[in-house]
Every structure is written in structure tokens, then in C-alpha cells.
């Protein structure tokens, strides 16, 4: 049964990586800007539907990446400018307004694409043998890509001067403002970055899952629980959160059943929130 062990381990690893990808955008928006973004799931849908549109237009799947950046970037800009900007430091209002936004985006997707399921062809089919176990090539590619994306963001966040400014803004907005940082612009860029990350997650995952306008909600809730457990503001925390949630759900699904895994994730999230409410905002 060695191959089963390898297979299950790869699955859990994949689950953790894909969850990390899914939560990344929310980690940026909720973690850095403190915006409880209930429309995160719909940003993921936007990326997935951009990929679908590219396929419909007969374009290569890979064109969807720049396209997603353009679509999510401009939508992110408009949203920040006309909605989110008025709501910083009003956590409950943001929550409620982005909830409204999520309904709006979902309905607009329905209007544009219909309510049906879209099917995206796998850009890379076939499987690769790992220790005698065949594993889908696209999943492996995806995991590699996530490592690069997350690694790149970590490097950027730790090294670049733009990231320094973002950190300064989060740490003390008034001070940052007074030393000449344009915090408004920085916040806007951070928000756009978060939306784009969510969109890219959608584009990357779309070939593996079902794509339909209401797909976002599940991603939203899972992302929140990851942040709740791992904390935000640093990628290691995000990874821990994804590992705990993904490991728990997948592990219990293997050992007991999926419903047990589902219950366990919710209960663990509740316990984390209860015992360590500030954990969300702790930074290393």
C-alpha cells in the first residue's frame, strides 16, 4: 500500500498548496488593509471566467494570465476608488458592503455567461509517475507555480522598498502620511494586488474544478478559516493555516469521512477564533 500512501500524501500536499493560493488574495486584502472582503470568492470567479472567455475566443489558456491581470486590476482599481476607500476602519460596514458587492458580481457573471457550468480544457494533460504513482501533470505544474508565486511575493515583501512603504502604512498610517508616503495610493495598489492574486488563483484552478457563477462562496469561507488559523500579514502564517485546514479536511476525509473533515475544520476554526482572537493580526 505504499503507492496509496504516496498518493494520499501528494493529495494532501496539493490541497495545502491550492488552499494557500486561494487564500493569498484575501490574506493581502484582509491582512494588510484590514478589509473584511466578503467578495473574495467572486474575485476568484472573475479569474476563472476570464480563462473561460479566452477559451471561448479561441485563445490559448496562457493568454488568460495577462488577461486576468488586466480584468482584475481594473476592477480592483474601480472598486477601491469608489467603494472600499470610504470604508477603511469601518470593519463591519466593509463586511456588509462587500457582501453586497459579492451578490452584485455573481449576478453580473450570470448575466454575462448564464448560470450553467463551464468546462475549461486542461492546458497540460497526462500524468507523471512519482515513486510508481501516476499523478496528474497539471497539478504538479500548479504546485510548482504556487511555490514560485508565493516565494516571489515573500521575497518582494521582505526586500523591496514598496513593501517597506506598505508595512509603514500598516504600522502607523498617520506617521507614514506625515513622512510623505502617499498612503491612499499605496492602499489602492495593495488592494489591486489582492484582487489580482485572487483572480490568478481562479485562472489557475479553473481547469481542475467546476466553473459557474456561484462558485465563489466556498472559496471565500475556506480562505477566511485559513486566515483565522494561520493569522495574516505573513506568508508563513498563511501556509500554517492552509496546512492545518487542508491537512485536517483531507486527513479526516481519508481516515473517517468527508463530513467529519468538514466538521473538524469548522470546530478548529471556532476554537482558534475563541482562544486567540488577535491571532488574525499577529505578525512576526
Amino acid at each position: 500500500m505504499e503507492s496509496l500512501l504516496v498518493f494520499n500524501s501528494l493529495n494532501i500536499l496539493y490541497e495545502v498548496f491550492s488552499l494557500l493560493l486561494v487564500a493569498l488574495g484575501l490574506g493581502i486584502i484582509f491582512g494588510l488593509l484590514r478589509v473584511m472582503n466578503m467578495a473574495h470568492g467572486e474575485f476568484i470567479s472573475l479569474g476563472a471566467f476570464t480563462a473561460v472567455s479566452c477559451q471561448m475566443a479561441g485563445l490559448s489558456y496562457w493568454v488568460a494570465f495577462p488577461a486576468t491581470l488586466v480584468v482584475c486590476g481594473s476592477i480592483g482599481f474601480l472598486l477601491e476608488r469608489f467603494l472600499i476607500r470610504q470604508l477603511y476602519n469601518r470593519p463591519f460596514d466593509t463586511l456588509v458592503a462587500t457582501w453586497g458587492l459579492s451578490i452584485l458580481l455573481r449576478k453580473l457573471l450570470e448575466l454575462g455567461f448564464g448560470k450553467g457550468y463551464q468546462s475549461l480544457e486542461l492546458p497540460l494533460s497526462g500524468s507523471v509517475s512519482i515513486w510508481g504513482t501516476g499523478y496528474p501533470a497539471y497539478r504538479l505544474l500548479l504546485m510548482g507555480f504556487i511555490v514560485i508565486l508565493v516565494g516571489g511575493l515573500t521575497l518582494w515583501y521582505n526586500r523591496s522598498s514598496a513593501a517597506m512603504r506598505v508595512k509603514a502604512m500598516i504600522g502607523n498610517p498617520e506617521l507614514a502620511e506625515s513622512v510623505g508616503l502617499n498612503t491612499q495610493r499605496l492602499a489602492c495598489l495593495t488592494f489591486i494586488c489582492g484582487v489580482c492574486c485572487a483572480g490568478l488563483a481562479g485562472t489557475l484552478l479553473a481547469p481542475l474544478y467546476s466553473v459557474y457563477p456561484a462558485m465563489g462562496l466556498d472559496y471565500l469561507l475556506r480562505s477566511f478559516f485559513i486566515l483565522v488559523i494561520g493569522g495574516v500579514g505573513n506568508l508563513w502564517g498563511l501556509f500554517t493555516g492552509a496546512a492545518i485546514i487542508g491537512g485536517l479536511q483531507s486527513g479526516l476525509a481519508v481516515l473517517v469521512n468527508q463530513t467529519a473533515g468538514y466538521f473538524a475544520v469548522l470546530i478548529v476554526a471556532i476554537i482558534f477564533l475563541w482562544r486567540n482572537p488577535d491571532g488574525i493580526f499577529h505578525r512576526a
Binding site: 494520499n8 493529495n11 467546476s210 483531507s250 476525509a253 481519508v254 473533515g261 468538514y262
Partner: peptide
């Protein structure tokens, strides 16, 4: 709302 079926496939 579960959309990961890997455990079942295993």
C-alpha cells in the same frame, strides 16, 4: 460545500 474529492478518489 466540499469540492475536493481526492480522498474519495484514493
Amino acid at each position: 460545500d466540499v469540492n475536493n474529492f481526492d480522498a474519495n478518489i484514493a
